[in-house]
């Protein structure tokens, strides 16, 4: 069984008439990184909510179909149970600090206290994930005194410390400055290499190309395509969905640099270079 299975998922927010998610079907395997792209109204964040159980437990509304995470049917379990299997980090680092704790160290402990872990286990995990996310040096600071990049990494550490099977990152760098984004992407790179199952929503297409094994293309709540980054970004109709491919792919298209015997263009600089030289 796949780690995530989505079958005929449909959803509409309360007091609205339009389906935000319209008949989605896909699965995510263990250790895979799935990229989700689409313009602002495509339904990307709502899909993340549906995977983490916020839809339909926090946001009510009309819900159809089935989402299974780690063997758990999301609709039938409380959010508190679901989040031990799938963690969500979103855009705004500031509002992800619970405000319930005075230090970074305690902030990471918050989720673990709720899980009812024994004290020793908490300390072990907090130290481990603060170090992994390179925020151990600020462990005694007030979370609200950190920079955006540090705050976002504390948010990721807090979620990872609960050791979920899957991590969802919903535009984790869109409110950060270049350095903060870089810091967070370095972490994402580490995690993908370490075999974590990741769902990454991102506007920066070069990052999707770099990290995603497969890409889900959404438009107006519908699933347009689900394929490898090469296949997705080689599509000729991306602008119809409000998207552009990575710059390197645009250049490859203009120069006709393709994978031999296919209609596919390279999506990373390394591949572009390799194909260009072969040619």
């Amino acid at each position: 069984m796949s780690t995530i299975e989505v079958e005929n998922l449909k959803y509409r927010y309360p007091d609205t008439t339009k389906l935000v998610l319209n008949d989605l079907n896909f699965s995510v395997e263990k250790g895979e990184c799935l990229g989700i792209i689409g313009e602002n109204t495509a339904g990307k964040s709502t899909l993340c909510y549906a995977l983490a159980g916020l839809v339909p437990h926090f946001y009510k509304g009309a819900y159809g179909g089935k989402v299974t995470v780690n063997g758990l049917v999301v609709r039938d379990h409380e959010i508190a149970t679901i989040v031990e299997n799938i963690g969500l980090v979103f855009e705004n680092p500031f509002s992800q600090m619970t405000g319930a704790k005075q230090t970074v160290y305690e902030e990471v402990a918050f989720g673990l206290e709720n899980m009812g872990l024994v004290r020793q286990e908490m300390h072990t995990r907090i130290e481990k994930y603060l170090k992994l996310l390179a925020v151990y040096s600020v462990k005694d600071k007030n979370p609200f005194d950190l920079s955006g990049g540090q705050m976002q990494r504390v948010a990721i550490a807090s979620v990872l410390a609960m050791e979920p099977e899957v991590l969802i990152l919903d535009e984790p760098t869109s409110q950060l400055d270049p350095q903060g984004s870089q810091e967070v992407f370095e972490v994402i790179e580490e995690l993908t290499k370490g075999g974590m199952t990741i769902i990454l929503v991102e506007h920066k297409m070069d990052k999707i190309a770099q990290y995603a094994d497969r890409v889900l293309l959404l438009h107006e709540g519908r699933q347009v395509d689900l394929d490898t980054p090469e296949n997705i970004f080689s599509r000729g109709d991306l602008t119809d969905f409000g998207l552009t491919p990575p710059v390197v792919t645009t250049i490859a298209k203009a120069l006709g640099i393709q994978y031999p015997g296919t209609k596919l263009y390279p999506v990373t600089i390394e591949e572009f270079k390799r194909l260009g030289e072969d040619k």
Binding site: F58, E78, E84, S95, G111, L112, G116, R119, M122, V159
Partner: peptide, 22 residues
């Protein structure tokens, strides 16, 4: 947004809570 963050940290868990600080 903050209450979503709290939900994501399982604050509403039915089981017994523990505490980091003695």
């Amino acid at each position: 947004e903050r209450s979503i963050a709290l939900e994501m940290r399982g604050f509403d868990a039915p089981g017994k809570k523990t505490f980091l600080n003695e």
